[in-house]
Nucleic acid binder design. Sequence first.
DNA 1: TGGGCTGTGAAAATCCTGTGAACAGCAGGC
DNA 2: GCCTGCTGTTCACAGGATTTTCACAGCCCA
Lengths: 97, 97
Amino acid sequence: MGRLEIRPEEHAALVDGRPLSLTVRELQLLVSLSQHPQRIMTREELFAAVWGGRPRDDDRSVDVYVSRLRAKLGEALPGRRLIHTHNGIGYRFSPDG
Amino acid sequence: MGRLEIRPEEHAALVDGRPLSLTVRELQLLVSLSQHPQRIMTREELFAAVWGGRPRDDDRSVDVYVSRLRAKLGEALPGRRLIHTHNGIGYRFSPDG
DNA sequence: TGGGCTGTGAAAATCCTGTGAACAGCAGGC
DNA sequence: GCCTGCTGTTCACAGGATTTTCACAGCCCA
């Protein structure tokens, strides 16, 4: 899928062959998102996939980690936006910018 | 139903495969309308379906959102009018222009 | 032509998201 | 043990987006 490769079994994500230094949570989130490209995933779905269970009503973990992921992806792939926000619903991963 | 696809479970509405960028309320209204094609729905019905409960006597929310929906549908499908006004009653969704 | 109904831009209110920062827990090295 | 650096969690605030409400213009039909 273009310049970004995600290898869950190897706990790694590569951009042009160079590994991103992601933390465990960041990688889990990226894996979850990328497993459903172009599909809007709710915070509940993402939370269940990464943390397990249901989030507290006011939990912002997903948002915080999306923010950190974007920062690291943005450094490695300037100008591209892979994670799109859908207000009131959740996030969508789009392999092509 | 032609070029417009509505997928409530995915929080999405597509025209020729391309997603419309609708807000939550806009999508809810479109879903409600499209679930009863060719049937005139009163403002009360639409309000109940989207907002829940009954509208205030002078509430114009349904009209405002119909207007916004028409604008976005009109951009994606120029020349077609999917939502028809029935004066004094409400609105009707017609899949074929 | 008049009065109620509808269309719609725009302001106001509300809700949601982005993100820096503080804090706690943990692992390794000394 | 104590310090250091890293990760994860939570909070707080600013900014952004959506929703709600208002106002006025235009439409429709008697």
